[in-house]
Structure formats: C-alpha cells, structure tokens
Write a protein that binds this DNA or RNA. Structure first.
Length: 612
DNA sequence: ATAGGGTTAG
C-alpha cells in the first residue's frame, strides 16, 4: 500500500543520484524522474524543485520527455502547495515556463500524464481558472484527469462546479465518487453526500470514512455510528482514518462502550496506532467520562504531538482535575514542546474549574510573554469565566472593558453565568442587554437571567423573562440526556414517553423521587419557567431528561455499577442536587457530562464542589 | 508514474 502523509524516507542512492545530477549534464532522464519522485514521496518538494532548477539551466534536454516533464510539473505543484502563494504572485514562474515547454514540445497535447500534472499544478497554486483552461483544452480526458479537476474544485469548496464536472464524466471510478462524497461533506451538505454515497457501487474504506466523518462533522453522530455498524456488516476493513472518524462520533455522544469496542478492534487487528488515532482515543475516553483510560492511552503513546497534549490537558481540566492538567502542561513544556492556542484554552479551563485565579492570570500573561502565543478572544472568554466564577465579577467586567477585542456573545454569556453563581442582578442585566443584541434567539440566557431573578426573589423579573420568551418567540432547546446500554445509546428528552420501556422507567422514576424526598430532597420549582401550578412544576422537574436517563440506568444495570450520562445543556441545579442524593441513596457512582464539564458524583458529593 | 477519507476549544 502506498504511504500517505507519513512520508517515505529518501534513500541514499537517490541522494547519490542527486549529486550526480548536480555535477554532470550527462545524467539520464531516468535518473531525473527517480530522484524527483523520491523527494516528492518524502514530502520534500523544495528539494525536488532544486533538482528541477538545475535541469532548467544546465540540462534542459533531460526534460524533453513526458515522464520528466510530468514529474517536474508535480514538483511545482507540490511546492506551490507547500508555500501558499498569494493570488497576485500565484502564477508559478517555473511552472509557467514548464507549461510553455510542454506546449512547444507537443507533450501537453499528446501525453495525458503531462496534461494531468499541468491541471494539478495550477490547482495547487490556487489558479483555478488556469487549471480549468488546461482541463478544457485537453484533447482527450480520462477518468484520472477528471478526478484531478474534481479534487481541485472540492479543495476550493466549489462543490457545485465539481458536480458539473462529475455529471459530465463518461466514466467514473471509485475515486470520482469518493471525491464527491467528501466534497459535499466539507461543504456541510450531508444529504447530498449521502445521495452520492448511496449511488456508489463497491464502496471502500474511503467511501465509508468520508460518509462517517460527514455525519460526525454535522453532529449527526448517531447516524455516524449506525454507518460504522453497517460498514462492518458489509465486510469492508476499516483503517486508522475510519476509526478516527468513528471515535469522534463516540466522543460527541459519550458512547463509551462503542468507543471501547473500537479500541479493542484496533488492538485485536493490530491496527497501527498513529498519533492521530492515539489522540482520538485519548479524546474519546476523556469525553466519554473515562479519564483513567484516557490517561492510560496517553502514557502508552510513543509519539505525541501538540494536539495529543492539548486534548489530554483539556480532558483533565473538564474532569475537574485542574492540578493534574497543569502538571501535564509543565511536563509538556519541560520536554521542549511548543503549546498552541488550544493548549492554553485547556490550561485556563483547568484553572477555572479549580478556582485558581492567580495561577490563571499568571498563565494568561505567560502566553505572549513566554510562549509567543497571542491571546485571542477565546482566551479572554476563559479569563472572564475564571474571574467571574471565582466571584470577581467586577474585575471580569473590567477585563471586558479593557480587552483589545469587541466582546462577543460568548464573553457576555460567561459573565451572565458568573452572575448566577454570585447572585449579581445588576451586572446580569447589563450582560443580558448586550446578549439581546448579539444573540437574541438563544434561549439559554433568558433561562439564566430568570434563574438569577428567582434566586433574588424577584418574581416580577421571572414573570418578565417568561413574557419575553413568549413575545420574542424564543425556541427552547430541549434538554437531552443519553445513557449507553448494550452498546446502544438511549436518549431521553424531558417528559419523554417514547422509549419502549417507558412504563418501567416511570415506575422507577416515581420510586426514585420518593426515596429522594425521604432523604431530604426539595424540588426547586422556582427554576421552572412554564406558567403552571406548583404540582405540575414538581412533575416537570422530576421528568427532566437526566433523571429519566438515570432511572433507565438504575433499571438496567447491576447494583453499584457506575452510571454515565451525557447531557446537551448545562447541568440543571435541581438535577445536580438530586443526583448527589442518588449517589448516596443508591450507592452508585455517576459520571455526568454537561455542556461544559464533567461531574463525578459519589457518596452524596460532586467533584465540582457545586462550582460550575 | 498521476486522484479520494482523519484529531484538540468556552
């Protein structure tokens, strides 16, 4: 199989041959092609270009054949791709002279390989119109040439153009179909990607991986996992890339059992774990609530890159293990690795979730002072979160005023969240005023502010929010919680009665609520925004999606085993206190992933120490 | 001898 990405090394005989080319004009054309090919395979396009320069000035006759000429054009294409050129200077002078040479010698017309390399060179240089012209002027087109044109359009995000070429092709091979699936996938058109996928005969791992990643990217993870199942039924062998796509869907859904199954598949079939697959495994375990296995995979990886480290740091931070995250960061630095913007997001989240305000400030200023990473608005967002959550709401406000960015909705939302924790109605109202302009349709802030009013016993405020939601026709995002059982993700929305076992689930729920009440649980009915009576509010709280998922979990899993729940929204306060009691009353560990972080419940306590 | 699929964020 051809090596991709991870480049083949340049062998000594190629280096020796290169030396001969430099010294003598008598070298033969065969040598030229083999040396350039070696450099291109080794992802050393500039070396290939060096060979080419030497030939053009000292031994141009060696280019007078279709093999050398097409490889020379490929060298230009690869170096143009390696050094992104701005449009104004994008006509590669070398490439243009090769083009002229190809026309004059007749190879551009006579040889389809030369023609293909020409199209590709212009495509890689960002000159789509020149690529298209070279394509249109081709005296003859084969599948290969068309595929290069398809890929050129797809890489520019011009999938409609690609489609026109695709529709005009007399013959199409698997690569043509796969390119179109990918093209629709990256343009976000999952439906069209699926149409092409369905029309593809004899799909290979590329086809399946493209389609699975299309679903994963579109946050349609359930369908991604369904397709992974079908792929194995179809008997197509997955590779590294397939599994990375599948794991990202598992991460999204919190599907630990399926993710672990993929991991076992990797080990059983001795699939080579490259950095990306390793990172995907680390990320999957962390996002599915199994931080121990995440670290185990991390430690076992022989080669790690900045994404691997960042992913692990973020994982630890989200599990509330801020100190571990920070010591991992130190370890990374002491190994001489350069952190990036995302690494610092992880570092700042670590500080935020543990409440390390002064450390957070120190890390924030070290970004530009020591590590040469300019803070972006996201980092200011983390700082606002850090300060606000720790109770420094005024200081957070100061930071927003002084930062070199126009504050966005994320920033104000973080401040609003802080106001909920620290009961600051005044600043909450100011944040809300901004949010109503910047992100008027998101329901979350209205709910937050209403909760803040409820805390302050400002019932006219609560009523006002309720009215606003109705008047502005704000669509509430329904809370969804899922739990895995027998390798299937079971998802619940509030008040869900669609599950086949809903009768048993509601019976368990009723028993659960009774036992909680005996243990001192009091429903926080003031959190309910619907205009209904007290009893109905209690019922609405009891039927929150996470409680349904837990009832299902209690019903289906052996005593004392850990329940893992994944929720799409921020943890609800009522559920948070209820789950603490559940962990005590039922003697269970529960790991709940909410929109922001993980909560590990055990013996009546939560790892977040009620700080989220 | 030339073409197609993948990972980290509040």
């Amino acid at each position: 199989m051809r090596a991709r990405g991870g480049a083949a090394a340049v062998r000594p005989e190629h280096l020796a041959a290169h030396a001969r080319l430099v010294k003598s004009a008598d070298a033969d054309a065969f040598l030229v092609t083999s040396v350039m090919r070696a450099y291109l395979r080794a992802s050393l396009p500039l070396q290939a270009l060096l060979v080419l320069r030497g030939l053009l000035t000292r031994a141009p006759r060696l280019l007078a054949n279709s093999f050398s000429l097409s490889l020379a054009l490929q060298a230009c294409a690869a170096s143009a791709a390696a050094i992104p050129l701005r449009a104004a200077t994008a006509t590669p002078p070398l490439g243009a002279s090769l083009h002229a040479r190809a026309l004059k010698s007749g190879f551009a017309a006579a040889d389809i390989f030369v023609r293909t390399a020409l199209v590709e060179m212009y495509a890689k240089a960002g000159r789509a119109e020149l690529a298209r012209a070279a394509f249109d002027e081709a005296p003859r087109r084969d599948v290969f040439l068309c595929n290069v044109m398809l890929a050129a359009y797809v890489s520019r995000g011009e999938v409609a153009e690609a489609r026109t070429v695709f529709d005009g092709m007399r013959d199409r091979d698997l690569v043509s179909w796969n390119t179109m699936i990918h093209g629709y996938a990256v343009s976000g058109d999952v439906g069209m990607a699926r149409e092409i996928f369905d029309g593809t005969a004899d799909r290979d791992a590329f086809s399946w991986s493209s389609m699975i990643s299309a679903y994963a990217k579109g946050r349609r993870s359930k369908e991604a996992l369904e397709l992974w199942r079908e792929m194995r039924v179809a008997g197509v062998a997955p590779d590294c890339i397939t599994m990375v796509s599948v794991l990202s869907a598992c991460s999204d859904m919190g599907a630990l059992a399926i993710g672990a199954e993929v991991h076992q598949f990797v080990e059983r079939n001795r699939v080579e774990v490259d950095v990306k697959l390793g990172t995907a495994l680390v990320d999957m375990y962390a996002k599915c609530g199994d931080i121990d296995n995440s670290l185990k995979v991390f430690r076992a990886m022989p080669v790690k890159d900045v994404l691997t480290w960042s992913s692990t740091i973020i994982g630890l931070a989200n599990h509330g293990l801020g100190h571990d995250a920070l010591s991992l960061f130190s370890e990374m630095i002491s190994q001489g690795l350069q952190p990036n913007e995302i690494t610092f997001i992880g570092v700042l989240i670590a500080c935020t979730h543990v409440g390390l305000v002064s450390d957070g400030k120190k890390y924030f200023s070290s970004m530009s002072d020591i590590h040469g990473v300019a803070p972006r608005i996201e980092h200011y967002g983390c700082m606002v979160d850090l300060l606000g959550r720790a109770g420094h709401v005024e200081e957070a406000m100061e930071l927003i005023r002084s930062m070199p960015f126009e504050p966005d909705a994320v920033i104000w939302r973080a401040l609003l969240g802080a106001c909920r924790i620290h009961k600051n109605v005044e600043i909450a109202e100011e944040a809300m005023a901004r949010l109503r302009v910047l992100d008027p349709l998101a329901d979350g802030h209205y709910v937050l502010l209403s909760n803040i009013y409820a805390q302050a016993n400002s019932w006219e405020g609560v009523a006002e929010m309720r009215k606003t939601i109705r008047r502005e026709n704000i669509q509430r995002v329904p809370g969804r919680s899922s739990i895995e059982w027998e390798n299937t993700v079971h998802e619940f929305v509030s008040g869900d009665r669609s599950h086949p076992r809903f009768g048993e689930i509601y019976k368990m729920l009723e028993e659960m609520m009774d036992r909680l009440k005996q243990a001192g649980y009091r429903p926080m009915t003031s959190l309910v925004l619907q205009d209904i009576d007290e009893e109905a509010k209690k019922q609405a709280l009891a039927e929150h999606s996470e409680k349904l998922a837990i009832a299902f979990g209690l019903l289906t899993t052996p005593a004392r085993s850990t329940l893992r729940i994944t929720k799409n929204l921020r943890a609800c306060e009522d559920c948070h206190s209820a789950i603490k009691l559940i962990s005590l009353v039922y003697d269970r560990k529960l790991v709940v992933r909410d929109r922001n972080r993980f909560h590990h419940f055990s013996e009546g306590q939560c790892s977040c120490k009620d700080y989220w």
